[in-house]
Structure formats: C-alpha cells, structure tokens
Design a protein around this nucleic acid. Structure first.
Length: 556
DNA sequence: GCGATCAGAT
DNA sequence: CACATCTGATCGC
C-alpha cells in the first residue's frame, strides 16, 4: 500500500551536484605509496586542525570503525581537542596530503593509463586541490547551524541536538524480540541475573555533548567519486548517497537496517538480500540483489561482487568508475590464493583499497581454515573414542562457521542439529551439502550448534542435563580468530582446552578474517595505490602501525 | 505493549 | 583489545 509512495532514490539534484563536486576535488587522506614524499616531521595539520573539533569531525567516540561499541575517549579528552593532531580527523588530514593518484597521469600506471587514454584526454591537465568542500564531500557536518538546510540535513541536525532522532524512522537497531532471544540457537539460561542500573537518560553523554552531531557517516564508508556508501545504515539518510551497499549479513555491518528503511536502494549479494528480507523485514522494493562475478552498471559505475570467503553471502565489491579508477572494498574477508585468480583483480590495478584490517598485526599468524578443521575433527574423534556418550557442540554467531560443524558432520557421518530459526537461515543459503545435513530433532544427533555466547560451563552443564539419558559429557568448540594465542602459532596441538568436570571447551583459531600473512600476500598481489583500513582505526597508534605495514609491503 | 535507540557487557 | 552480537533501560507511539 505505501510501497508506491516510497521514494526509491535520494534527491537527484543533491546527487548530481555531489558527483560533480567529487570529480573536481581530490581529497587528501592516507599515504600514497606512489608519492613517497610524506614527511613525518612536518606538521600537515596546522592549517586545519584548529577547526576540526568545532566542525564536528568524528571523534574517537563517534567514529568507531565497524565494531567498536566500547570506545576509547582518552585520546580526545586527555590530549585536548585536536591540537595534538591525534584525533581521527586530524589523522585523516595528516596521513598523506596527496590524493593526486586519483588523477590520471602520464606513465603513472601503465595498465590503467592505456585503458583510459580517451578519458584522460578529456581531463584538464592541471587540477586544483580544493579543500574547502571536504566537509561536505565526506559527509562531515558542522555542529553550528550555518550549513545549508536541505531537508535531510535539517532533520539530522535537529535530531542530533539531543542525540536522538525525533522522527524515529530508519535508524533502528535490529533488536526486536524475535531476533534477540534464542533466535539462532537457544540454551536454557539460569535464573540468576546481575542487574545493572543504566544511567538515567538525562545523565547520558549524548545529551550533554549536545553541540556535536553524534552520528555522521565516517569517510571510509563512502566510495570517493561516487554517490555510494558501504555498510553505512546506522546514519539515517546520508546526504548525497543514492545507493547503499551491504557487504554481508553481520550485525555490525547491517546495523540500522529495519523494516522502516527508506533512505535508498540496498545493493548486496542474492544470499544477503534474502537474509535482509527474511530476518529484517526490509521492504523488498529497496533490496537489489546483484549476482556475483557479474558486472552491473549502477549510476554509471561498473560494480562487480566477488566471493569474500567470509560468511555465506559475503562479497568483495569492485567499483570501476567512469574516469577509469578502480576501487575495491573488501567488506569483511579472508584473503586466499583463489582471489589472485579473479580476472577483474588481475586485469586492472586497484587504485584505492578499502581493507578489512581486523588482524593486521604481525602477532596474528594463525593457521589455515583447513588445518583448523582437521584439528577439530581429530579432537572430536579422540574424544568420542574415550567417551562415546559425548555431545559435541559448535558455537556460532548468526551466520558463519558453517564449515566447522559441516566438517564434523561429514567426518563422523552424523547430522547437525540447529534450532528452527537457525535452520531457516541456513536453509536460505541454498547450499545443498549443508541443507542435507541438518536435522529437526535434537535427539537424532550428537552434533549441536549453539550461539557462541552460550558456550560457558554453567550453560553447557544445564544443557547436558536436559540430555542426561543420551550423553555423559560435552565437547564444545568456539571457533574464532580471537581465541588465537601467539604461543600456539601454527601448532594447533599446543591448544589447551578448558575443562570443568565433564564439560570441555576448545577455543580454536578458526577465522573468517585474513591473518596478517594473508593480508600481506593479498596487498602485495594487488599493489593498490592507496589503502584505507576499515577496522581497528579508532586508535591513532594502531592506524600508524598499519600504515607502516602497508608501506613496507609495497616498497620497491 | 512494542519498536526504536541508547549504554554497557561479553 | 572486541570476532558480533546480547541485554537491559527508557521513551514515544
């Protein structure tokens, strides 16, 4: 009924003017590997830094990468507002001042240069770097009311005055009751509760920081030179954004999507599209599935989704914009050898790489998925030999880690039990091997999938109790890169499970993000001109560390 | 009562 | 730290 009234696309005037601006402006940001003239001792910030905070640039507390709900505000508060040059915004300015690599130049990139001869000829030979409009370009809003009053901005500003949106549309978290409780696997919970009183509303930070917009879309979620954003649903209507891309169906990426979504079309893989419709009840007319490995032209930009080797439906997004530039957004991914065979990544150089840097630290050199899977199978078999009456539990979030329980299922020839809600999700993948291995009755198999958060001794003890006639012990796996310990390294046999009575829990370094080594290989294969990290960026020291990694990888 | 939207916890 | 949520509180409708 309301479907017809809903605007599918953002205001066309805004979009075209923004695109035009972006064609004229080349922003500064991260280190340009082709122009190694960055001087660490020079103060690049002096001309801008004074106004940064006053202008509502994202502070550490606001601009949180993809997954930092707990934020470190020390940086800004202890060091004073921005004059130290340590805030996100000043770092943004400081880390390399030249985006000129985005202008096509003679001999700079032979592959792209050849392809783009025609386009390049149309470009003016000299481009002025305009900085005055950067605020607008990246979507940073001023906190005073001086900026122009388009409807959406006015609304954002109004609602941000007190940190809450007054129209209540479009910015919701996905936390309705149905999704929340036992959706993907339930476990009997003890009645014990620790009651923590929340601060009264009037004491909350967002209210006191009333002169600062609390949620502007951070620059690294915007694809420069396009009206596109990636995984940016928690910011309401983003000015100048007419296409919202979703890399995969994990909460920290789709957060903000709900059935009231009306800010623009959502582009994603067919699997992700199905989940967005099924689980979030987003109006289907906003959801546009794009087949993988297929070129789609969206607002003049060639867009191709590639397998990301993360969770089912996860995609890398490749953008080829009309001036010949190529950008790759990895979303969350685990880099692997097969990616070096993707024709799109071979045929053209990627100019800007938006990179999942979750484990971009030399300490994360964890084993391959395959090694972890054989290890899990080995442990399971040993355990069952010693105690045949063992219930095997694999922890998982919403989606992802399917291969862990599938490997056990295959090796032992047993079915997989997951509760109805998780089953529905898993069946939606259209993955025959997985679908065929599921069972509906929990008594029919010794292999169960539970929410990873429920893998605690107390929980598992009571879970085992409900099956006491069948089982005498529990063997549980929590498969996450986060369990990785340097002392273990590649030697999985050094893993020490934690045990309590007849409950044994193994933390296994099964990661769906790239290890440090895999990141390095991927970056060295791509040789991008610029890298914009998208994870672990709320801390200046971290950012600096990562950039120096990139520099080292791309030397020579 | 329910959805939206925070803060805080794991 | 935070892999990706999960939980509880409050407010508006």
């Amino acid at each position: 009924m309301e479907e017809e009234d809903m605007p599918l696309f953002a205001d066309a005037t805004t979009v075209s003017s923004l695109v035009q601006q972006q064609e004229e402006i080349f922003p500064e940001d991260y280190f340009d590997f082709d122009d190694c003239d960055y001087d660490h001792n020079r103060d690049y910030t002096s001309s801008y830094v004074v106004s940064l905070d006053e202008n509502g640039f994202p502070q550490v507390g606001d601009e949180d990468g993809d997954r930092h709900s707990n934020v470190n505000t020390d940086e800004s508060s202890a060091m004073g507002s921005g004059e130290d040059g340590n805030g996100f915004a000043s770092d943004f300015y400081r880390c390399g001042t030249d985006w000129s690599c985005l202008v096509l130049e003679e001999g700079k990139d032979s592959i792209n240069a050849k392809r783009n001869d025609n386009l390049r000829d149309q470009l003016p030979s000299e481009r002025k770097l305009k900085q005055s409009n950067l605020f607008q370009m990246w979507g940073f809003k001023r906190s005073d009311a001086h900026f122009s009053v388009s409807t959406s901005l006015a609304r954002d500003f109004k609602s941000n005055q007190n940190g809450y949106h007054e129209d209540g549309v479009g910015e919701g978290y996905i936390q309705n009751k149905k999704m929340k409780t036992g959706n993907w696997g339930s476990i009997t919970r003890d009645a014990q509760k620790i009651i923590v009183k929340s601060k009264p509303l009037y004491m909350r930070k967002s209210i006191h920081d009333d002169n600062r917009p609390s949620r502007a879309c951070p620059f690294y979620k915007k694809i420069t030179g396009t009206p596109f954003t990636v995984d940016a649903f928690r910011y309401g209507c983003i000015e100048g954004c007419s296409a919202y891309f979703l890399t995969h169906f994990h909460y920290d990426h789709y957060g903000g999507l709900s059935k009231g979504w009306s800010h623009g079309p959502i582009y994603c893989s067919p699997r992700t599209a199905r989940l967005v419709r099924m689980c979030l009840s987003v109006n289907p007319s906003f959801i546009i599935p794009l087949d993988l490995n297929t070129e789609h032209v969206i607002e003049g930009v060639k867009v191709t989704l590639l397998e990301a080797n993360h969770c089912p439906g996860a995609a890398l997004i490749h953008f080829h914009i009309p001036n010949g530039q190529c950008y790759l957004h990895t979303g969350d991914f685990r880099a692997c050898k097969e990616m070096q065979g993707f024709p799109l990544l071979i045929s053209q150089r990627v100019n800007v790489l938006y990179l999942d840097t979750t484990y971009c630290d030399p300490k994360y050199k964890f084993p391959s998925k395959e090694d972890v899977l054989s290890y899990v199978v080995k442990i399971t078999k040993n355990c069952l030999k010693k105690q045949p009456r063992t219930l095997v539990v694999v922890g998982a979030y919403s989606i992802g880690k399917e291969c862990v329980y599938l490997a056990i299922s295959k090796a032992l020839g047993v079915k997989i039990f997951a509760n109805a809600s998780r089953r529905r999700t898993l069946l939606s993948f259209g993955w025959p091997e997985l679908s065929g291995s599921l069972c509906t009755n929990e008594k029919d198999t010794l292999l169960h999938v539970l929410p990873i958060s429920s893998l605690k001794f107390e929980n598992l003890k009571s879970y085992l109790k409900t099956y006491h006639e069948q089982y005498a012990a529990v063997l549980a796996f929590r498969p996450t890169g986060w369990t990785y310990r340097e002392t273990v390294g590649y030697k999985l046999d050094l893993i020490k499970p934690s045990s309590k009575g007849n409950i044994t829990i193994y933390g296994v370094p099964y990661s769906e993000h790239s290890s440090f080594t895999e990141l390095q290989e991927f970056v060295q294969f791509l040789r991008p001109q610029k890298i914009i990290p998208t994870v672990n960026i709320s801390n200046a020291a971290n950012r600096e560390k990562m950039q120096s990694c990139f520099r080292a990888w791309l030397k020579g």
